[in-house]
Design a protein around this nucleic acid. Structure first.
Lengths: 337, 337
DNA sequence: ATGAAAGCGCTAACAT
DNA sequence: ATGTTAGCGCTTTCAT
């Protein structure tokens, strides 16, 4: 293993000079710098991570805690994780992958050992048990998702309230007066992850303002559950002409069932989905949708964190503005019979 | 920050004693051990990762390199990653998440800096440019996937050859004589990831042995591509009664199209999928399938790696035996008209 | 069964 | 603009 000292000797300078060439924290004459850089090249030197961490008290590692459960929005999580990893690299950080499994202990372990300089938590619950720990430490952190109490925390999330409002507006603008919201599985609401409720709030209040009638039904994914839910919806409100779906695994079943019932999309019924663009564009019908901006969320989270690590941070809630893309699944409400 | 020295002082022993209590590399009297453990508890001590890595020359970190492209088998990748992370933890290791983006440089960086003790590479290509580096270093590594030349490497993968054979056998046993294989997107074959070809080889050779006629067509995901492909297949071989699908995003379109054409599954046509169980059980029809054992692959990879790290390793190729689960999408071939 | 002490490779004062 | 040096917190000989 090549050490700093060996590079220094090879270049005919002192160890600290090599260190300063690497860190740029001191001005170095051009000649010296070049000789050092050449030696680094020739010897194939890589700074030892452990030694660096010990001496500088910084590991240049960001911990990313992903939920253990892989039942929801998996591609989104993966996309966020990858965005976090690539963005972190552009700032000189590596990413440590922690699963939710260890729970709060993982936070203690990572914080206490100096393994990571900072952490990003995904899938934060409204009253997450890890939050007190985060507040109690001076280790910077960013949450992806919004807990009930955000005081003293930095959070990044899609503005789900605005997302709901946007969906209602879109359908209202097309003349729909009566809409149904197909939500996440009941378990998601019970888990109090927050985003589902916030979407609903946005939908409700804007619907009220626009004079829309709205019905909400949670729904497990899959065909059978969707069939039951849909039947109930049309039973209760035959006049419904617009759907908002916030459940990846209900999207395709919904489309199939509508087709099967002879309801044409978008002529008879309009559908707006809240899902990743990939799902919206690969469905059997190109869906009008509000995208879940996974990459952007990951990127923002890292950038907030790096800002904090460099002392220019702020305790802030960053809500990403939703964007609705009109595709083939929504159109004017049918003329009232 | 609490240090080893502080714990030692608090417990009234020397630093080395505390270290040995922690590592268990020396026998300690019960009394001393208890006092030390108590001090550790009371002070909330966590060993400093950097110092430990520097002194012991081991970071207790495993690097996991995931492919950057998120277009294929994303949930599988995520599941593998999570299985790797949780299994690693049970052996005392943490996981560093690297994206394929950095390419071979990442291997150099991690190896050179001692950031990780070992690495796992996912989505290995037949002639992967990272392989020479791995062979040239003494850092243990395990590949998930099978390159063309496995000499000197440890690999873990599903036995895709046997998987193909199993699918052919299953359909033959049900009396099918004429089958079609709907494969991955052409790009996957061009990328030479290997698994697709190996599946095909297994299908072909067992089909020959069993007297099955077989047709293979690569297929992009989505409805439109599937519609074109399916039409061509039935044009060329109207007598086909069995399908093998190895493309997550073609599964649902295939089922929808068959339904639409009035071909009942499994009465008229049987379908066998090669996909994660989750996909097979959540499709519009519960699919007979060979599972992609993501968790098992992740777990195996880590266990191979840990074995190597502890000096009881072997340069081996571990092929996981495929398992076919019969569900509702396959049955006896229809009587010949 | 326990202690003392020498590093591990680097950073960052403190010098000049 | 560069060199000298004292740690960072731990592991691990070498002693006893």
């Amino acid at each position: 293993m090549v050490t700093l000292a060996e590079v220094a000797q090879h270049a005919g300078v002192s160890a600290s000079t090599v260190s300063y060439v690497l860190s740029g924290k001191r001005s170095i004459s051009v000649g010296t710098r070049q000789r050092v850089e050449r030696s680094i090249q020739e010897l194939g030197y890589h700074p030892n991570a452990g030694a660096r961490a010990l001496a500088s008290n910084r590991s240049n590692i960001i911990a990313l805690m992903v939920p253990l459960r892989t039942d929801m929005y998996v591609p989104v999580m993966m996309e966020i994780a990858i965005a976090v990893a690539t963005t972190a690299r552009t700032h000189g950080y590596d990413v440590l992958l922690l699963t939710g499994e260890e729970g709060p202990d993982a936070v203690r372990r990572v914080t206490g050992s100096g393994l990571a300089d900072a952490m990003i938590l995904m899938d934060v619950e409204l009253d997450d048990e890890r939050l007190p720990l985060l507040r109690g430490t001076d280790q910077p952190s960013v949450l992806i998702g919004l807990p009930a109490d955000t005081s003293g925390l930095t959070c990044v999330d899609l503005d789900f309230g605005a997302t709901g409002a946007l969906c209602a507006e879109h359908l209202a603008r097309f003349g729909h007066r009566d809409i149904a919201v197909i939500g996440e599985a009941p378990a998601v609401y019970e888990r109090h992850t927050g985003f589902a409720e916030r979407t609903l709030d946005g939908l409700r209040s804007r619907s009220r303002e626009l004079g829309l009638r709205m019905l909400h039904r949670p729904c497990e994914g899959g065909y059978d559950a969707m069939a039951v839910t849909l039947a109930r919806i049309f039973d209760e409100r035959p006049s419904i002409t617009g759907f908002v779906v916030q459940n990846e695994s209900a999207v395709e079943p919904l489309l199939a069932l509508l087709r099967q019932q002879g309801r044409a999309v978008p002529e008879d019924v309009s559908v707006v989905a809240i899902c990743p663009d990939q799902v919206a564009t690969q469905a059997s019908l190109r869906l009008t949708s509000v995208a879940i901006p996974a990459q952007e969320m990951g990127r923002h989270a890292v950038e907030q964190l790096v800002a904090k690590l460099e002392g220019r941070g702020s305790d802030d809630v960053v809500l990403i503005a939703p964007e609705l893309t009109i595709r083939a699944s929504s159109g004017p409400a049918p003329a009232t019979s």
